[in-house]
């Protein structure tokens, strides 16, 4: 049975990179005695895949991984078992069964929502806040991306689904699909440049709020959280 798990990551564990989080969950499954399915061969691996890696330093309320279970005692039992072996800052938020034929988490991703605050707890500079309406109303938001070979111009605008800036918090819902993934800090950097203020990525704390799939069409998207693709069990 395929199961999707939603987890959150806060505090010091934000410094643990994606590959180590993967190893952390593999060990957690064993400690919690979850009856997870394994691949065959001399070094069997747990059948486990993640929706999208979370960068080192980022926190999250809504990250996902898919696993395959051989047996189980219901979602609540699974969640409780896993939460009893988590380190502080890591928490299992939900677990749902994926009906047959549902794409895995990674392939399902269409969008993600984020909040961005200043690490020092202060408000965004007034010059930035006052430029927001004008900035976000522009037809296009062009940034240049450095790739290995050359620099690329990208228009962020079509990839921003929702965005708002209050004094102390920036919130956005953006494209997270493999083709059009953008970062919340790219929008902020463009805004700061627009306002003529220096942007320093290290000053900002990014938190992923949730990750979504598109149940509608490309023209008429209907974004739902990844765990809404499954059913309780």
């Amino acid at each position: 049975m395929k199961v999707r798990i939603k987890f959150s990551k806060h505090g010091p564990v934000k410094y643990i990179g994606h590959l180590d989080i993967l190893r952390y969950f593999q060990k957690s499954m064993r400690r919690a005695e979850v009856d997870i399915a394994y691949s065959t061969g001399f070094s069997p691996h747990q059948i486990m895949s993640f929706a999208q890696p979370l960068g080192v330093g980022m926190e999250s309320d809504g990250d996902y991984l898919d696993i395959e279970l051989k047996t189980h005692n219901g979602a609540k039992d699974l969640i409780d078992r896993l939460n009893s072996v988590m380190v502080p800052g890591m928490r299992i938020e939900n677990a749902v069964e994926l009906p047959d034929g549902v794409k895995n988490a990674m392939a399902s991703i269409a969008a993600a929502s984020y909040t961005v605050t200043l690490k020092n707890g202060q408000d965004y500079p007034e010059e930035v806040v006052s430029k927001w309406d004008e900035f976000i109303a522009s037809k296009s938001i062009i940034i240049t991306k450095e790739t290995k070979k050359n620099t690329l111009e990208v228009d962020l605008k079509p990839h921003i689904y929702e965005a708002s800036l209050k004094n102390d918090i920036f919130e956005c819902l953006v494209d997270a699909s493999s083709a059009g993934n953008i970062k919340s800090t790219q929008i902020l950097e463009a805004l700061y440049n627009y306002a003529g203020i220096e942007f320093n990525k290290i000053d900002f704390q990014v938190t992923r709020i949730d990750t979504f799939t598109n149940e509608g069409t490309e023209e008429k998207p209907k974004l739902i959280p990844l765990d809404a693709m499954g059913v309780t069990f």
């Binding site: 010091p12 564990v13 400690r31």
Partner: peptide
């Protein structure tokens, strides 16, 4: 500090908090 941890290799070496 966050600034230091984000600037060094493998910051998880210094945070404790392990199982």
């Amino acid at each position: 500090s966050d600034e230091i941890l984000m600037s060094v290799d493998k910051p998880a070496r210094y945070i404790g908090n392990e199982i």
